[in-house]
Write a protein that binds this DNA or RNA. Structure first.
Length: 596
RNA sequence: GGUCCCAUAGCUCAGUUGGAUAGAGCACAAGUUUUCUAAACUUGCGGCCCUUGGUUCGAAUCCAAGUGGGACUACCA
């Protein structure tokens, strides 16, 4: 057993059993920085069980620890019911040797757990370009996938593109009516933006028609349903469903423009997929499951002919799963798709949907339905829900044009990185290509970290007027520290091959000890982040480690250190810090530069 | 009406299965470079952890009720 707190906990359990003949499982926590020591036992619960005063118990346990494990425990202090334990530097160095001996302290060997997990994310509509909300989805879905890979699972990243439906017909129709043959080539507009332009145009013209109808004395709801544009749009959808050649050709053509545009954005974001599904190919799935469910009595037919499920026992409501005319609703296809996926991948142990929290209810219903249908894997489906991105004046609304466009944000981040870096004169030694590379890395690092450091469940605020920071708790701060370490290592004759003798540096500097403690905390942190599917914990860890390293860098000379062993140790620790930073940031989809 | 989520410094956010005097960053104020990259470091300022009850040795954390904000609750997706 290498984990030091686990060793201590076991020692404590044994000590209690030996001394008081009771089986108790003490849990240690990290000692707060204002106290001496590294691990703390909170004595109150134990004291109660053993009917002792907390301080007496602490004293007794402390002295037992020293006697039983002199190689491990250096000293202890008792403060008001808390037992603070300091370990011998040798113990820390021993742990450090174990830690640094592995190829990668963050990533477990690929596919080593045998678990196969599918993560769905991105899932864009093909009627408009991506905005900042989509960026959050992509960055989050990618990071969670990468986190699971780091934990040794096999991960399939999948994208389910919403490429059909009434909203797609809107941009198609507007283009037909007003487009005059405009293409990305003829206009120089990126494909997804061009299609989005017609989606917005449709809405504008549609609203005009509604207003005219209202002005001539019609009800608003009637006007909305009977505006000529809407009627035409619906007939276009019918044509699409009937496989009308011209409609399908236009649809294919415009979607191709969008995919070309998305490809660029995805490349910039650095997200990838193993499989891309299209709703045009999956939207009929699920109907047959409805029949089966009906026969099983899971669903029932209502008087008007629609089919529903009663989920009131689960605290939810009745939910329609098939319309009276026999056509699917959205959840029908989700039921079918989930079943298909588990059929296609029988080894699938988990299915994760990265979808905004406005669909919390939807997924609750979906999982209950799958459960009712008797699929045992339903309990392994998870909705990775995340909050909206809001602007200072409220929500983003595509149709009202109050969206922060993904491509714009990416470009702005690039420009900010460029001007900041140039102002600092950092790239004077770089050639043009290297500079571009660096600005991209820094801009995306800042953006991704800005998004991922916030717990996904929370609504997050983005102020376009204030550009994302490059100082403090940011991506570039971590990137900078990494570059510093690389520079240090490059200037030295450091070789990673050698081991650290456990007898050197018996007086660990506080900053050194702090780094070793961070390494010790890494594995539990990753377990925790995996359990919660929470990359913000990884981001937070990276930040804390970076801060600690900067303190170390400030306080402990490395190249200037004359004692060879200590210099070697500090170089070694620096190398490990860089390796850990690189690896945890890789989970977040952020790359770190060698110099900046 | 029903279900769910959120509320911590001026702003953006951390805060572990309940533990010690609630932490960072930004902003503001001051300092640190003959020394390994100052995109750094140090110090100061800043709090009714939304409110009220409850659980207990102990609550930002758990429970209940309330307040404020948001989402969902369609034969939309």
């Amino acid at each position: 057993m290498h984990n030091l707190s686990a060793q201590l906990e076991q020692l404590l359990t044994e000590s209690i059993a030996g001394e008081w003949q009771q089986q108790l499982q003490p849990v240690l926590q990290n000692t707060r920085p204002e106290f001496k020591g590294e691990f703390t036992l909170v004595a109150f619960p134990l004291a109660k069980a053993l009917k002792l005063s907390p301080d007496v118990l602490c004293e007794r346990l402390g002295s037992i620890l020293i006697t039983k494990a002199p190689q491990l425990v250096k000293e202890y202090q008792v403060v008001k019911g808390f037992l603070n334990i300091s370990l011998k530097p040798e113990a820390w160095l021993q742990y450090y040797n174990f830690f640094s001996d592995r190829d990668n302290p963050v990533y477990k060997p690929a596919n080593s757990t045998g678990k196969h997990i599918m993560v769905e994310y991105s899932s864009p509509n093909t009627n408009k370009p991506l905005h900042l909300g989509h960026v959050r989805n992509n960055v989050l879905g990618y990071a969670v996938s990468e986190l699971l890979i780091a934990r040794g699972h096999r991960v399939s990243r999948v994208n389910l593109v919403n490429d059909r439906g009434i909203h797609i017909c809107k941009s198609m129709l507007a283009w037909k009516l007003y487009g005059q043959g405009e293409t990305p080539e003829s206009s120089g507009i990126k494909g997804d933006h061009l299609v989005g332009k017609y989606y917005v145009l449709f809405d504008k013209e549609y609203k005009k028609q509604i207003q005219e109808l209202v002005n001539t004395g019609h009800e608003k709801t009637w006007a909305e349903q009977n505006a000529p544009l809407m009627l035409e749009c619906q007939s276009l959808l019918r044509l699409w469903e009937q496989n009308d050649t011209a409609t399908r050709q236009l649809w294919t053509r415009m979607n191709a423009w969008v995919y070309e545009g998305f490809k660029t954005t995805y490349t910039q974001l650095g997200v990838t997929f193993d499989t891309t599904y299209y709703e045009s190919e999956t939207y009929t799935l699920g109907k047959s499951c409805i029949d089966t469910g009906l026969a099983q009595g899971v669903f029932y037919k209502k008087e008007n002919g629609s089919i529903a499920i009663d989920l009131r026992a689960e605290g939810l409501d009745e939910k329609i799963v098939l319309r009276a005319d026999g056509t699917s609703v959205y959840i029908t296809q989700d039921i079918g798709t989930a079943i298909e996926r588990f059929k296609a991948y029988p080894d699938l142990s988990q299915l994760i949907y990265t979808v905004g929290n406005e669909q919390d209810y939807h997924f609750k219903v979906l999982f209950h339905i799958l459960n009712r249908l008797g699929y045992s894997w339903a309990q392994h489906c998870r909705h990775l829900s995340y909050g909206m991105v809001e602007l200072p004046d409220g929500k983003m609304k595509s149709r009202e044009g109050t969206v922060v466009d993904a491509d714009d944000v990416i470009n702005e981040m690039f420009e900010t990185a460029k001007s900041t870096t140039e102002a600092l004169g950092k790239t004077e030694q770089f050639n043009a290509d290297e500079s571009q590379q660096l600005y991209k890395m820094l801009g995306m690092g800042a953006l991704k970290y800005f998004i991922l450091k916030v717990d996904a469940v929370k609504t997050m605020l983005f102020d376009p007027k204030e550009s994302i920071d490059f100082n403090g708790n940011t991506g570039p701060f971590i990137q900078y520290t990494h570059a510093r370490i690389c520079s240090l290592l490059k200037k030295s004759t450091y070789s990673h091959a050698h081991k650290i003798s456990e007898t050197v540096s018996l007086n660990l500097e506080p900053a050194e000890l702090q780094l070793l403690r961070h390494f010790h905390d890494l594995e539990p942190l990753l377990e925790d982040a995996e359990k919660d599917l929470n990359p913000s914990k990884v981001a937070h860890y990276a930040y804390e480690l970076t801060k600690s390293y900067n303190r170390f860098y400030q306080e402990c000379p490395v190249l200037k250190e004359s004692r060879t062993e200590i210099r070697q140790f500090r170089l070694h620790v620096s190398y490990q810090t860089a390796l850990v930073l690189r690896s945890v940031m890789r989970i977040l989809g952020i790359t770190l530069p060698q110099r900046m």
